[in-house]
């Protein structure tokens, strides 16, 4: 139990520190997409450069491009596009497919790498 409390304390510290420092950057601070007109949850805090540097990600791991046959095109990336341009923003009342893609991309990676937030409230944290 004491371990848990300690853990929660540390976690809270880290999170609030992260949230605080997010404001000090002018870089990308949140995951945003114009297809979400009506946000159900707080935007996930996401310091783009810091995250990718720490995680050692190539641009096109997230900003991927696929050819017509569905094969990943190496050496090309899609930074100039929003995810929703390709990933199912159309159709449903709410872009469930887009939610799915975002979650699989972020949370999926966190789960498989055993690093980064996975529980709902960890990303969609309310502003402190």
């Amino acid at each position: 139990m004491r371990k848990n409390i300690l853990f929660i304390g540390v976690l809270l510290g880290v999170l609030s520190l992260a949230a605080f420092s997010a404001y000090s950057q002018e870089d990308i601070e949140f995951v945003e997409d114009s297809a979400f007109t009506d946000n159900m949850r707080p935007l996930p805090a996401f310091k783009h450069d810091e995250h990718n540097e720490m995680a050692g990600l190539e641009c096109n791991e997230c900003h991927h491009v696929y050819d017509d046959d569905g094969n990943l095109v190496e050496d090309e990336s899609s930074e100039d596009q929003e995810c929703s341009e390709c990933h199912g923003a159309e159709g449903d009342e709410y872009p469930m497919e887009l939610v799915r893609r975002y979650h699989l991309n972020c949370r999926g990676c966190h789960l498989s790498e055993k690093a980064g937030p996975v529980a709902c409230g960890e990303c969609h944290a309310k502003a402190p």
Binding site: N4, F7, P117, A125
Partner: peptide
């Protein structure tokens, strides 16, 4: 608890 992100939110989610 988890939805309202009270303390220990990650643990509580589990």
């Amino acid at each position: 608890w988890a939805y309202h992100q009270w303390p220990g939110n990650q643990l509580v989610t589990i």
